[in-house]
Amino acid sequence: MTTAQRLTLFLMMAPAILWLGVLIVLPHVEILILSFSERVAPRVYQFGFGNYLEFFTEPLYWRTFARTAIMSILVTAITLVLAFPIALYIARVAQGRVKAMLLLLCLLPFWVSELVRTLGWMMLLRETGIISYMLRMTGLADQPVELLYNDGAVILGLVYGGLLFMIVPLANALESLDPSVVEAGYDLGGSRWTVLRRIVVPHAMPGIVAGSIIVFMLTVGNFATPVLLGGKNGLWFTEQIYAQFITRFNWPQGAAFGMLLLLLSSAIVWAGLRLTRQGLGTTLRQA
């Protein structure tokens, strides 16, 4: 490589390296160091595992943690099941303008901020909200119904927020499936179910995994939706991190929780990749 080429490469890489280094790696290193510091006296800190021990000894913490993990997996699964037929329709049935329109429709809710979208759901679901009102008007309920502040509302909001990020990689993956391969699947005697299970789903696997990773990450790390739609019952792990950093002003404890959440999502993504026998490389290309 000539000097000029090296310089060009360096200049082109510089924004990415700066971005990764300054905004992601550096804060995480800081958080990692912070998470291992214990307060022994006012304004006196020393190295120790106390913050992590606290997590395992206090049931509220690890239960919230486990709850977040399980709910996130559930949300990812529901999103996948809902997104698959939509993506299949967009990729295989819709043509030309209709296809672009459908993708735009999926994208439309994301022009509004997440907070406003979630507030929209609150308007629909609250005791004095539209759905409650409709139920009373039609006589299906004789008193106001509170649909907010339960797990169902949290899951609903999170699935809604994740849908687009599942549909796009899925539609991409399904689009590349040769129609005659599907026809051959039928021609050789396969039922709809066999063709779906043995041909369409395996083909879409990189897209399924890519979409699932994105949705899972977004869900696990979500803050506004569980807080607003779940209220006190939300119990999302990000709330614990927020509480430690902001309410309790216990930054080392919050840092330890942050690291644990990072470990959790990495572990589950790794397990998911192993389970579906997908490489990270092919998955990233699909996303």
């Binding site: 005659s180 699947g185 050789l188 043995r198």
Partner: peptide, 26 residues
């Protein structure tokens, strides 16, 4: 009736043996 497609339409997600066995398992 079985068809040999113009693009052959072999199943890329299966091995050669699985391609041939597919119809029978169906």
């Amino acid at each position: 009736v079985n068809m040999v497609f113009q693009s052959l339409a072999l199943f890329p997600m299966m091995s050669v043996g699985e391609n041939v066995a597919y119809g029978m398992t169906c």
